[in-house]
Structure formats: structure tokens, C-alpha cells
Deep mutational scan, measured.
Amino acid sequence: LVRYRTISKIPQITLNFVDLKGDPFLASPTSDREIIAPKIKERTHNVTEKVTQVLSLGADVLPEYKLQAPRIHRWTILHYSPFKAVWDWLILLLVIYTAVFTPYSAAFLLKETEEGPPATECGYACQPLAVVDLIVDIMFIVDILINFRTTYVNANEEVVSHPGRIAVHYFKGWFLIDMVAAIPFDLLIFGSGSEELIGLLKTARLLRLVRVARKLDRYSEYGAAVLFLLMCTFALIAHWLACIWYAIGNMEQPHMDSRIGWLHNLGDQIGKPYNSSGLGGPSIKDKYVTALYFTFSSLTSVGFGNVSPNTNSEKIFSICVMLIGSLMYASIFGNVSAIIQRLYSGTARYHTQMLRVREFIRFHQIPNPLRQRLEEYFQHAWSYTNGIDMNAVLKGFPECLQADICLHLNRSLLQHCKPFRGATKGCLRALAMKFKTTHAPPGDTLVHAGDLLTALYFISRGSIEILRGDVVVAILGKNDIFGEPLNLYARPGKSNGDVRALTYCDLHKIHR
């Protein structure tokens, strides 16, 4: 019993810090008490220290592992850092350059016999395009090294910054494609005289377009951006097909006994025919423009016929181009109408809503002055909100995010209106959640004399007048207030005048 009563005193000691020596009952000389009392004092002292730490809000209350900052290894790049964003855009520009100039170089340097010394005699450094290609190869190699040090988000939505895990993730992902696209074939085969082989191998750079397509997928929600990307894709495919079309004609031209190829026909049409040795002929500019003209006309199913396939190889390629053109029509131009419709969806919704308003007016036989006010209010409210119901949009977000959005939407009023000066951010967040926005066209009466005042109004834009009878008592403008002081009276009061809008007004109100 003594032991039980001794232990039962522990909660009292913990909360009230009572010393055991003052209790005459606990001072009985028993061996059990002498053993338990020192333990009680020690526990009391420890609990006292913990309570003191909690009340003082000291940093040592938290466990040590929670006080440590997340460790980022040296030379690790955050995937959302500004440097990584700028670097990704730079790589994107280099990939676009590669997609345009690599097929052009591979096709127009394929057994090209233009006048001038061969590239091997001039030297590697004197070729501007080769120098640019070398810079692109170096940048792609540097990009691989950067990807080995860039964080990523795993399946659990955690940012991984450990170098080993980053390397394994990159090896399992895009490393092989990036490595093949970054191989400097110019340096590996330079001086061997195989410019045709170098041009063909350099087309491996186009593998990076797969990554670019995935990154550009984030802009699919913007109709104008999608339309622009589709047109660029169409032009890029036409450019690639033009390079292939020229390569076919250029390879067949020296081996044909009869002059029936499209390059021969082009030379005869523009007065620059090929001679018996295969030299001469149109310039590279004429060849490229004509090839691009043929691919565009074939892809769009126009086909004027002034550039036509004559050999079997050219006919087979033309059939493939027609098939590609039909697929592009289905996948690209078939979506253009939907994209344009999405661009004008706001206008369509406006006309639909206006039609419903006019049908309501016609069905209920609203008189002319009231009908005009109804239409003007709808037009003004639509121009202010673009038909978007803010309350319906915010309803799907958590309250903390709703408060931040409301604070942002009402920031101008909260910053410049005098009653809100000096208020804490928590108070402003709470008030912003209570605001209701209303609009009024010129001549609209917001409050009639004798109406119950259940709200306090803040003028965000425009001006109003307060009338008693036919006498203008006051004219209020931006950041002015009218209405009933909230919670100042037990019952809502009545208006002693009319409140009429002089201009288009936007008002925020808080109800009782």
C-alpha cells in the first residue's frame, strides 16, 4: 500500500512540481520508500527539464536528425535550378540546329562534286560548318556529364541527390541515346576521305529529338503553341524528305545512260545542264529549293507536275512521300480545326451564355430598361472574369491554397485601402477568403433606401454616388468604403439613402 501511494504521487509531482519531503505519510521509514524516492526525484528532475525545454521552444527539443539540413553532394545540380533551365534551352537550340543542318550536310555532301578544292585539302579548321559541328559534339558530351550530376524525382516524389543513384537512373534511361548522339564521328573518321560515311553517321544526332519531343509535351495545353509546333514538325519532315529526294537524284545521276532524272530535267529547265562528264548542272541553292518544293507539294497532295519522278527509285520514294503525307494530314492537320476551336472556345461560351440571357429575357418578357441593365451587367461581368467562376475553380483546392490565391487576387485593395494598413498577414488572409466580388454598370442602383444592410462594401474600381431623395450626399471612388460596420450592432440596419454607380464599378463586399 505504501508503495502504491508513493507511485500514485508521481503525476502530481510531474505537473505541480511538489516535493515529496513535505508529505508526512511518505516520510515513514520503510525500505521500499527509501529505494523508490531517489528514482522519483530523478524522474521528476528529468520531466521538469523536458517541460522547461518545451515551454522555452528551444531548438534542442527536436531530434538531432530533424535539425540537420538535407545534404547535397558537391557538384550536384538541382533539376529545378536556373542554371539547369538555361542549359536545357541551350541544348534545345543545338538539337534544332542539328535537326536542320545534319540531314542537309549528309545529303548535299554525298558524292558532291561542286567546283573547288576537296575538304581534305583545305583542312578541318577552315570549314565553318565542321567547326560548328565540333562545338555541338562537345556541348552534347558536356550535357552527358551534367546529367550524371543532376537530381531527379523518383516514384515516391522524392528528390534524389545521391550521385550513385543518379548515375544508375541515367544509365537506365537516356544515357545510350545521348551517348550515340554525342559521338564525334568527324574526329574519329577525319582524314579518311569518307565524307559520305561521316554525313550518314552524323544523322545519329537526330535521336535527341525524342527527348525534345517529350520536353515539349508540357506545352500541349496551349493551343497556339501546339499549332506552332505542328507546323514546325511538318516543315521539318518536309526538309528531311527534300534532303533524301536530292540524295536519290544525286546518286543516280552519274550512272544513268539517259538523262531522265529530276536533276537533269531541272538543269535543262533553268539552262544549267550537266555536261557529258557529269559536272556542271544547277547550283546547290536551286537543287535544295526545288527538292523542298517537290516534297511540300507531295505532302499537301497538290502535285503540280513541273517536278516529277521519272526513275524507279524516284517513283518509289514519291509513293512513300504520299503515304507520309496522308498520315500527316490525319495526325496534324486533322487537329488544326480542334485547336482553332479551342482557341476561340471563350468567344463561343460568351455567345452561348448571351443567347441564354436573351432567351430568358424573351421568355419572361423583361421590360426594355431592365433588359438593357441585365445585358450590360452580363457584358461587364464577362469582360472582368472571362466567364470563369472563381468560386467553382477554387473549390477543388485546399483552404490554405485558397487563402493564398484570394490574398493575391485582392492584393491591390488590401495594400491601398486604409482600414487594412497594419493588419497582420493572417488577418488579411482571413479577410480575403470572405470577400465576394460584384460588378455594376453605370446607372445601376446597388442599394435602395430602406434596404437591409448586411454587408460592408469596398470599391475596387469606378465611382458611385450616394443620394437622399434627389440630393447627392457624397461621391465615392476607388478604395472608399460604404455599408454597415460589421458586428457593431446586434441587428442589421437599414439604408438611409440610395447608392448608384456612376461608372463601371468593381466592388468587394463582406457579409455579416
Rank of each mutant, 00 (worst) to 15 (best):
V357Y: 04
V336Y: 04
K287N: 01
F228E: 01
E112H: 14
N154I: 10
A155S: 14
L94R: 01
A392K: 14
T424P: 09
L230E: 04
W240A: 01
V357H: 01
L207Y: 09
P254I: 10
G191Q: 06
I388E: 07
I91L: 01
K84D: 01
A181L: 01
E64N: 13
L241Q: 01
S326E: 04
I166A: 03
S337E: 06
A403T: 05
K84Q: 04
C243Y: 01
I177T: 04
I260Y: 07
I405A: 02
H239Q: 01
R421P: 03
S258M: 11
T290Q: 01
I72K: 15
S301D: 01
G281E: 01
L409H: 01
T290A: 01
L129G: 12
I248V: 01
T438L: 11
I166M: 13
L428H: 04
K434I: 03
K215H: 01
V393P: 03
C122D: 01
H79F: 01
A225I: 09
Y377E: 15
Y97D: 01
Y65R: 10
T295E: 01
H79D: 01
G267S: 01
G123D: 04
F185H: 04
V142L: 10
F101T: 03
N368G: 09
L292M: 01
D286W: 06
L431M: 11
Q253M: 14
A348Q: 13
N250L: 11
V95S: 01
S298F: 03
L401F: 04
G303D: 01
R371W: 01
V180C: 14
F360M: 04
I244Y: 01
W174D: 01
E196Y: 11
S194Y: 13
F296D: 01
L279H: 14
W89V: 04
R214S: 05
G249L: 01
Q379E: 07
N250S: 09
G173Y: 05
E376L: 11
L145E: 01
L216A: 09
T120K: 12
P254L: 05
C400Y: 10
H351N: 05
T98L: 01
D286Y: 01
Y104K: 01
L94Q: 15
V160Y: 01
Y65H: 07
L201Y: 01
I340S: 03
